[in-house]
Design a protein around this nucleic acid. Structure first.
Lengths: 217, 217
DNA sequence: GGAAAATATTAATCTAGTTCAAGATCAATC
DNA sequence: GATTGATCTTGAACTAGATTAATATTTTCC
């Protein structure tokens, strides 16, 4: 386990400064421990699963997947932090997900249909990911149906999260969304530049600044 | 297959009226044909699956599930049209999904955790639904893993749809969302009162009126 | 077929959040 | 440790969409 702190100073007013630690923590976790929380795996299943994963390291800012390219891998975050965003016709990035240790990420649509992805997935901090290639995933699901169960549960949970976000987006003000985001993902504000948090919340960085100011004053 | 037309008149200006048919169509479809589009089922699997489903008829306006109650069933729409909505603290209904023939609906979160549901699911037209009780579903998944696969695929697809809606919500204007909605679900505008479409789009009925007027003038 | 209830429209006014533009602060690099 | 590019903040002017309230239209139901 490595840690890497960077001190950021924020001016509150002419006389006060607040310091915040932006943490680039690399937490090494075992992917199997995540999976066996939901299903029970035999030794054979564990071994096969591990054998088909491709480990990869990403430096901060590097891409795991670029928009326009076909997605060949489902991505599991082992350590660090990634974000997935969509670039619209005006060139604005719309962040749709952050993912830290233990999360699956990537473009399911492109992975399924093998059409070019509309999303970019990028490391926000030095990260370690595990790639699960589409063909190997299909093989895995064929041979060991317990993984059908595992991914069924993953997708089912993710669906619940996405429904909640949708309600959030429509029913709450930007300020409420920011509060809820901080409550739900306290770790992210230390990894993620504010402009991406703003994007995730569906507002401009300027407006997020205003919300933050209003609070601290 | 029954059909039931109601003629609606809309005033465009003092001299012109346009009529629209609001269709309350009952289309009877076989649930198995939906499932076997994604997985292959043996005779035994088909029979068991059908045997655990509870058919139910709903009149327009009736509830399949009320907020505050625990969800005991996953719901498959056989015929008609349902909507699922969330009522916020101010008492505003926020529609999160419409479901017609072939769709699964209901509150996955409440179904999984057996906590009271925050959603209400209600018939927008006379409908026929099939209830899949939670305990029977668990039994089904235990005995026939092919259904793990089926629901994995369902949830995976639904997740893609939800991600798209999230992007839609943040990146597009209300007018664009309405256009896309009409393109994607042309059938719904004939089932669904405009105020619920407005809610689904995340706008007020008044603003939807404005958008519609701007178009026809 | 008529009255009441639900749904849709219109218009005036208001506001949460955007846009633009400039300045302040921070991080990376040589 | 000075320079440069990225991130963050501030403020003024603007706009998409909300709110309120009144009216019109449609549907339900007796």
């Amino acid at each position: 386990m490595q840690k890497n702190f960077k001190i950021l100073k924020y001016k509150l007013n002419d006389f006060n400064y607040v310091t915040k630690k932006r943490i680039f923590a690399i937490m090494d976790r075992n992917i199997l421990s995540h999976i066996t929380r939901h299903v029970t795996l035999s030794k054979e299943e564990q071994d096969f699963f591990i054998s088909i994963l491709l480990p990869q390291k990403l430096k901060q800012g590097e891409f795991a997947q670029k928009a326009g390219e076909i997605t060949y891998n489902f991505i599991h975050v082992n350590a660090g932090c990634l974000m997935t965003y969509f670039t619209d016709k005006e060139g604005n990035d719309q962040v749709i997900q952050f993912a830290t240790s233990g999360w699956w990420t990537g473009d399911l649509h492109s992975l399924t249909t093998q059409q070019p992805s509309i999303y970019t997935t990028r490391a926000l901090a030095d990260s370690e990911i595990l790639l699960l290639p589409k063909v190997r995933m299909e093989e895995l699901l064929e041979r060991f149906p317990v993984f059908e169960r595992y991914f069924r549960i993953m997708f089912q949970n993710s669906l619940v999260t996405h429904q909640n976000r949708l309600i959030e987006a429509f029913a709450n003000t930007a300020e409420e969304r920011y509060s809820n985001f901080q409550k739900k993902y306290p770790q992210f504000e230390q990894f993620v530049p504010l402009k991406y948090i703003a994007s995730y919340l569906g507002i401009t960085p300027e407006f997020l600044s205003k919300i933050r100011r209003k609070r601290t004053v």
